Amino acid sequence: MARHLMALFRSLLFNLLFYPGTLIHCVAVVAVSPIGEGPVQAVVHSWSRMHYWLVRRIVGIRFEWDGAIPPGPHLIAVKHESMVEAIDTLRFADTPVVVLKRELAYIPLFGWVTRRYGVIPVDREAGAKAMRELIALGKKAIADGRPVIIFPEGTRVPRGAQPPLRSGFAGLYRVLGLPVVPIALDSARVWPRGFVKHPGVIRFKVGETLPPGLKREEIEARVHEAINALNPPRNGEGDQPKPKA
Rank of each mutant, 00 (worst) to 15 (best):
A77S: 06
A77T: 03
V78C: 07
V78Y: 03
V78H: 02
V78T: 01
K79Y: 09
K79F: 07
K79S: 11
H80T: 00
H80E: 02
H80Q: 06
H80P: 00
H80N: 04
H80S: 02
E81M: 12
E81G: 05
E81A: 08
E81T: 04
E81S: 05
E81L: 14
S82H: 04
S82C: 11
S82K: 01
S82T: 07
S82I: 04
M83T: 15
M83A: 15
V84A: 04
V84M: 03
V84L: 06
V84H: 01
V84D: 01
E85A: 08
E85P: 10
E85R: 10
E85V: 06
A86V: 14
A86W: 04
A86H: 05
A86E: 07
A86Q: 11
A86G: 15
A86D: 06
A86C: 15
A86L: 13
I87Y: 13
I87M: 13
I87T: 14
D88S: 12
D88V: 02
D88N: 13
D88Q: 12
D88Y: 02
D88M: 08
T89S: 11
T89R: 00
L90W: 12
L90D: 00
L90G: 06
L90P: 01
L90N: 10
L90T: 05
L90Y: 15
R91L: 14
R91S: 11
R91D: 14
R91C: 07
F92H: 12
A93M: 05
A93Y: 02
A93N: 03
A93V: 12
D94H: 09
D94Q: 11
D94E: 14
D94A: 13
D94P: 03
T95Y: 11
T95N: 14
P96E: 04
P96N: 08
P96G: 05
P96W: 00
P96F: 04
V97H: 04
V97W: 11
V98N: 04
V98G: 01
V98P: 01
V98F: 05
V98Q: 02
V99W: 01
V99L: 05
V99T: 01
V99A: 07
L100R: 07
K101I: 03
K101R: 13
R102F: 15
R102W: 15
R102K: 15
R102V: 12
R102G: 14
R102Y: 15
E103V: 10
E103L: 09
E103P: 08
E103R: 10
L104I: 14
L104Y: 10
L104W: 09
L104M: 12
L104D: 06
A105Q: 01
A105S: 13
A105W: 00
A105L: 08
A105P: 03
Y106M: 06
Y106L: 00
Y106F: 13
Y106D: 07
Y106K: 01
I107C: 09
I107V: 15
I107S: 11
I107K: 09
P108V: 14
P108H: 10
L109A: 09
L109S: 10
L109M: 13
F110G: 03
F110C: 06
G111H: 00
G111A: 07
G111N: 03
G111E: 04
G111V: 00
W112V: 01
V113Q: 01
V113L: 04
V113M: 07
T114R: 08
T114N: 14
R115N: 15
R115W: 12
R115P: 09
R115E: 14
